[in-house]
Design a protein around this nucleic acid. Structure first.
Lengths: 208, 208
DNA sequence: GTCTATACCCGGATAGAC
DNA sequence: GTCTATCCGGGTATAGAC
């Protein structure tokens, strides 16, 4: 048993040097993508980086704090995906439908990240950064709805909820397998969300 | 340390007698309601029943099999809650909206059970009973939609998805705290889901 | 059908050396 | 800032007695 540490196992270079914090977030994203948030552990992230289990505690108070960091990143990616869908040349209704579709498509393409955001019982009071990170995406939604509803603030608020809930529902059902496991399921769900959004807009008089 | 087993702890009577299987499902429902599916363990359920950790394995192959049994029960309760909302005297649109509201209200009233159904990564291929248990609720939905869409099967299928996704979205956002933590949040979400359902019906032409 | 006992593995978290 | 070493707790699952 005289094996030195570097003998056993296909570990990467160690992080004696710099940004272990950032490296941990990267590793966490990878691991969560591979095995889900549920089975994610600080210990395994440490192992993957070739670092001892004690090291992360210099950078994160506990496991949850690292998961929160992943959530911040995930909200950023989600916001970018939705914003990328906005084409100012399109009429507002079309834009809103595209945003709903992008939301669902993001969930289908990044199920683990989406799960971090909504299925990991993360404490948003303890980690206000997470709530903060969600604001860009929310803003894109509300401002687009405002264009449709004009100055009817009550309708705008209700329609915003309805569109958000519908897109979110398609996304979660997609991840639950309701639309099948095939690679086409994501497109089916995204298309459904987009058209449902249009239907909500058309029938919005019934919202009040 | 000569304490006999019955000395330590406020255990209930032991189950040397009968329906440990049913008792385990009951205990699981309680525990999951108290602490969530995530933190549910066979071991703790055993403890609560005053039974050793080995006993459950006579009745369930593993933890997941017990969780699946809880899911079957939960789907039954959900189906009953939705069906109870159907009043044949009402017009179909109103009925559908009421069902959506009932779905959301069930989630708000039984967050843990709802979480078992959709947030516990339960393998529905391994446990087909779970999928089976969902059918009554689905049937109530589809048959109501059929009354609205007449013989347009494609529209019916799309509207069914849209209504389901919308109700599901309101339910999951409700449990995520989006509508606040107050006791009124459930009613807000349920009302929103019902009205959004009406809007989807009104605007259903945009679904195709 | 339930018990006792135990083997096993894993994760969280900390103390103290370097 | 990372290491070594370790404690602690918890859950899963099995073997074999009763």
């Amino acid at each position: 048993m005289s094996a030195t540490r570097s003998d056993r196992g296909p570990r990467r270079r160690r992080y004696h040097h710099g940004d272990l914090k950032a490296a941990l977030v990267d590793a966490a994203v990878e691991l969560i993508a591979e095995r889900g948030v549920r089975n994610f552990s600080l210990a395994e992230a440490s192992r993957r980086l070739g670092v001892t289990v004690a090291a992360p505690y210099r950078h994160f108070a506990d496991r949850d704090e690292l998961v929160a960091a992943v959530a911040v990143r995930a909200f950023g990616a989600l916001g970018a995906a939705v914003a990328a869908e906005v084409d100012d040349a399109d009429p507002p209704a079309r834009r809103l439908a595209a945003m709903a579709g992008a939301y669902v498509r993001f969930a289908g393409a990044n199920p683990a990240l989406f799960e971090v955001l909504f299925g990991s019982g993360i404490d948003k009071d303890r980690f206000p950064q997470v709530r903060k990170a969600a604001e860009p995406a929310e803003g894109a939604l509300t401002s687009c709805v405002a264009l449709i509803c004009g100055d009817d603030a009550e309708l705008a608020a209700t329609l915003t909820d309805a569109v958000a809930a519908t897109a979110h529902g398609y996304a979660t059902l997609l991840l639950d397998g309701t639309f099948g496991e095939a690679s086409t399921a994501g497109d089916v769900a995204a298309g459904g969300a987009a058209r449902a959004t249009l239907a909500l807009i058309e029938g919005r008089a019934a919202l009040l």
